[in-house]
């Protein structure tokens, strides 16, 4: 963080020294009460046996919840699903978003309209995405029904009810609203590539592909690292779509780790164990993020 030079000192030194703290105090208060405290209580309950409707059994149990976790098959399968989900979503969103940003960065007639249309699913919620794709995937109302009438493929199968197709179906629905985020971020960064760099590249006789690889891509690196990181965390934590579209099914085939924790909380009220799972998820996320930032050399001079 480069800091701007502070404006000239004015007024009393003490008032000036306290001003920034006064300005951030509402935020500090909110974050401490409604974010830090809940996180702390999750860490606390991770070491407790605490089932909400059996308060007489509450006790400190040390690492027992974590031992239970290592033997819990559903934990491992939901973690594996989450990893697969994040990887598929972020890779595809990045590739499609990058391609899309490059396309709408060119000059052509109707570009403004094309941009608006292409970016529009960005603002759509997970539940609304579910509504829309339910209609599209439903054997009675969906596009497959119409395509089958035209002789393409066969209708009558529910892609969401079949364990073989449900993953791709959910991935495509989430892609629909996820790609614009990458496209917008990358387009913003594309516009800041200095024109001289392209001129120099073209003087050196570099073709389109070489210019992209040696000028555009290096310039975009930090934006791509940041976007993929934020998006990975977001896709990992995101439950709205899977909760409403598949509710983790069929037969647990699309249960992500946060979804498993949410189901655990609602069905068995086992808050102690749920807290242990949350703690594990938090640690995994943090570890992967730090590793990713290190490996990608984020923010280093090129």
């Amino acid at each position: 963080m480069a800091l701007a030079a502070p404006p000239p000192a004015r007024g009393h030194g003490l008032r000036r020294a306290l001003a920034p703290y006064a300005l951030i105090s509402p935020t500090l208060l909110l974050l401490a009460t409604f974010l830090l405290f809940p996180v702390g209580s999750v860490l606390y309950y991770a070491l407790q046996h605490h089932v909400v409707n059996e308060p007489y059994d509450d006790a400190f149990v040390g690492l027992a919840n974590f031992r239970q976790m290592f033997g819990d098959e559903q934990f491992w399968s939901s973690l594996a699903f989450s990893a697969k989900w994040v990887f598929a979503e972020v890779m595809l969103q990045l590739l499609l978003g990058l391609a899309l940003a490059l396309i709408v960065n060119e000059t052509f007639v109707g570009r403004a309209v094309a941009r608006a249309l292409v970016f529009s699913p960005w603002a759509v919620s997970g539940v609304l995405t579910t509504s829309i794709w339910m209609l599209l995937y439903n054997p009675a109302t969906g596009v497959f029904h119409y395509l089958a009438e035209l002789g393409v493929g066969n209708a009558g199968t529910s892609v969401l009810g079949n364990p073989d197709t449900v993953f791709s179906a959910a991935v495509v629905a989430e892609l629909w609203r996820g790609v614009p985020f990458f496209a917008i971020l990358i387009l913003a960064d594309l516009q800041s590539v200095p024109k001289e760099l392209y001129e120099a590249a073209s003087m050196d006789g570099a073709g389109r592909v070489r210019t992209f690889l040696h000028v555009t891509l290096p310039h975009l690196r930090d934006a791509i690292v940041l976007a993929t990181l934020l998006r990975s965390v977001w896709e990992f934590n995101n439950v709205d779509l899977l909760y409403t579209l598949t509710n983790g099914g069929p037969a647990g085939a699309t249960t992500s780790l946060p979804l498993y924790v949410a189901q655990l909380a609602r069905k068995s009220y086992d808050f102690g164990y749920g807290s242990a799972l949350t703690t594990a998820a938090f640690v995994i996320l943090l570890f992967c993020s730090v590793l990713y930032l290190r490996l990608s050399k984020f923010g280093r001079e090129k």
Binding site: V239, A262, A281
Partner: peptide
């Protein structure tokens, strides 16, 4: 760091608060 906190997993402690 707040960006790493899963909102969905904060449901129960937030409910209590």
């Amino acid at each position: 760091c707040t960006q790493f906190v899963p909102g969905a997993m904060m449901l129960i402690p937030l409910f209590n608060i």
